[in-house]
């Protein structure tokens, strides 16, 4: 389905590797030893009930949450709880949020160019070219000079995707990126994600769009109570859940 099937690198080392990730908020353990691997070019969806730790896990992967134990490895960049400098990791891991989080004082183009200029120290022309390319890719080349407040939710989310993509991350994390959108705007964002998947981008998504997960993802991860309790091809998980928790979750989702 994706590049991963054809071009597994000789060493076959996963692009993202999580080992025994643990994280507590106060006395509540939210991640109870998560192991996970994502191959280059793979599209992985995480599903699970509210509070099962999906966001926390995703946010740990780019250091927005400091993990208590375990190791995160992204393309050879290793992070453990003692690590403080996260810059190298974040250059390899992009993230798109539920609430878009565009910078409201900057135009769409400036949103995309900011990190190119400040972090990657590219010159003006290069920044502009990269930003134009990224915005065109999400179908918003003509909105370069628009402020976020002048854009619809779907357009804002696509700018946010462009902003992450422009940094050329190795993997893109998406946390329920369509959940804050009006129903009629969901598809324009999903089709951008679908296009990225087809181009071989490595994606790790938290989503409640089950049909999308089934159609686009190579692998599905079911989280429950801070653990991954099932994973595999989407069709298999949906049609033949092995655990009662997943069976119940699938039943619940499909009843909606």
């Amino acid at each position: 389905m994706s590049l991963a099937d054809q071009s597994v690198s000789p060493s076959a080392r996963p692009l993202v590797k999580l080992s025994n990730i643990r994280k507590s908020f106060g006395s509540v353990e939210v991640l109870k030893g998560v192991d996970m691997a994502v191959q280059e070019g793979q599209v992985v969806a995480m599903i699970g009930r509210s509070g099962s730790g999906k966001s926390t896990l995703l946010r740990s992967i780019n250091g927005l949450e400091r993990i208590d134990d375990g190791v995160i490895e992204v393309d050879g960049e290793c992070v453990d709880p003692s690590q403080i400098d996260l810059r190298a990791l974040r250059l390899k891991v992009g993230m798109v949020f539920q609430q878009f989080n565009l910078f409201p004082h900057l135009t769409a183009g400036e949103n995309v160019m900011l990190a190119l200029k400040v972090v990657k120290k590219q010159d003006k022309a290069a920044c502009r070219a990269a930003a134009e390319a990224a915005l065109s890719k999400v179908g918003l080349g003509h909105k370069f000079d628009a402020y976020p407040s002048q854009l619809s939710g779907g357009q804002q989310q696509r700018v946010a995707i462009a902003r992450s993509l422009a940094m050329a991350p190795k993997v893109l994390l998406c946390d329920e990126i369509t959940s804050a959108l009006d129903p009629e705007l969901v598809n324009e964002v999903l089709s951008v994600v679908r296009q990225l998947a087809e181009e071989g981008m490595t994606l790790l998504l938290v989503t409640h769009e089950m049909r999308f997960a089934r159609e686009v993802c190579d692998s599905l991860v079911f989280m429950h109570g801070g653990r991954i309790i099932e994973q595999g091809p989407p069709a298999e998980l949906f049609d033949r859940p092995q655990t009662p928790e997943l069976a119940q979750f699938v039943g619940m989702v499909e009843a909606r």
Binding site: N62, L64, L86, V93, N101, F103, L114, V118, V119
Partner: peptide
Amino acid sequence: GQWEASASLALSYGEQMRYVVLPQ
């Protein structure tokens, strides 16, 4: 969210302040 988005773009604390937070 503004801190988080700018952090995920690999901006340092000073850069976040200067380019994202203080202007707002």
